[in-house]
Amino acid sequence: MDLLGAALAIGLGAIGAGVGNGLIVSKTVEGIARQPELRGALQTTMFIGVGIVEVVPIIGVVLGFLIFFAS
């Protein structure tokens, strides 16, 4: 059961991170396509957004590792 919990934590976190990052990057690409001169600022904001969105899924991954290696 422990291993199932760890797998669920990592898997569901991966879904959240994937969907979230996909939304961020797709909007950034759209913005760059509309205004190519803003590419630098949009890229920077994209990386900041990705970093913020990925916090909770990565915390889930670390908890999954802890459960996996403690069992």
Partner: peptide, 16 residues
Amino acid sequence: LTLALRLFANIFAGEV
């Protein structure tokens, strides 16, 4: 809290 956890989780997961 999120500042600390973000950095720790990213680097720790990479090393594991």
